[in-house]
């Protein structure tokens, strides 16, 4: 078994008094693609957002239990959220580039980390854009506004922006759900390439997508982790009936 990058134990999350996640215990290995699937409102996105503490931004969220990343509880009092988020990057459902140039979007993360050397920045930006498979499309217009890119390009730019901070884990919240099939397949190829260097956790509504790109799949239902196993096993021979019902389209 590969090294456990992320490990949660009896994790419970409440929105105010409403329980959104109940007793989640899971071990996510490093440098693999792990997919979270499940019907809308099952808690998979909420769980993803707990892994880089983006839920801190939402009023009334309380979390119990343990979430360990590299064996450190990220909800410990002495954890610096800013440092955590540099290590655990996130790509959102809707591409959200800043109203800045392509170059400045990617350079944003390094810059706030204090990298100001032009040469060093150039190098980081080029590497990130290459890793996100968009360098060839934008290398001649790095100074243009990012808002002029297509939706698929914007999403790959957002991935490049995340990679520029040099994270170890990349969380993706339905990164291709707003894209056309061609852009989606580009993003999917990219995700498979990225697992060589990064631990990827992806939330998806698209079960074919989970089957195509992930090594492991976790099925969430009504705030509970129903089943977590190798993707192949989940899609061919699931243990639980609820999982089978969901992947065969009988509900959800």
């Amino acid at each position: 078994m590969a090294f456990e990058k992320i490990h949660t134990e009896k994790m419970v999350l409440h929105y105010g008094s409403k329980m959104a996640l109940n007793d989640i215990t899971i071990s996510i290995p490093e440098k693999k693609v792990t997919a979270f699937i499940g019907p809308s409102g099952c808690g998979k996105s909420t769980f993803l957002r707990s892994l880089n503490r983006m839920n801190d931004l939402i009023e009334g969220v309380t979390i119990e239990g343990k979430i360990l990343i590299d064996n450190i509880n990220i909800y410990d009092k002495n954890i610096d959220v800013v440092t955590l988020r540099k290590k655990v990057g996130m790509v959102f459902q809707k591409s959200n580039p800043f109203a800045k140039s392509i170059y400045e979007n990617v350079a944003y993360g390094p810059r706030i980390n204090g990298v100001n050397d032009k040469k060093q920045l150039d190098e980081i930006v080029e590497n990130a854009l290459q890793n996100a498979a968009i360098w060839e499309e934008v290398k001649d217009r790095l100074g243009d506004s990012a808002m002029g890119l297509s939706g698929g390009q914007q999403q790959r730019l957002c991935i490049a922006r995340t990679l520029a901070v040099n994270p170890e884990i990349v969380l993706m919240d339905e990164p291709a759900s707003a894209l056309d099939p061609l852009s989606t397949s580009k993003i999917e190829e990219l995700i498979v390439e990225l697992k060589e260097k990064y631990t990827i956790v992806i939330v998806t509504h698209n079960m074919q997508q989970a089957a195509r790109i992930s090594d492991l799949t976790a099925f969430f239902y009504l705030g509970q982790l129903i089943e977590f196993d190798k993707t192949k096993k989940i899609f061919t021979n699931p243990e639980k009936k609820q999982t089978e019902d969901y992947i065969t389209g009988r509900f959800g």
Binding site: N52, M54, L57, V82, T83, R85, K86, G89, M90, F92, N96, P97, F98, Y108, G109, I112, N113, C158, R161, T162, V165
Partner: peptide
């Protein structure tokens, strides 16, 4: 959210 997720304060 994008900025915060990149580790900005």
């Amino acid at each position: 959210a994008a900025s915060l997720a990149l580790g900005a304060t």
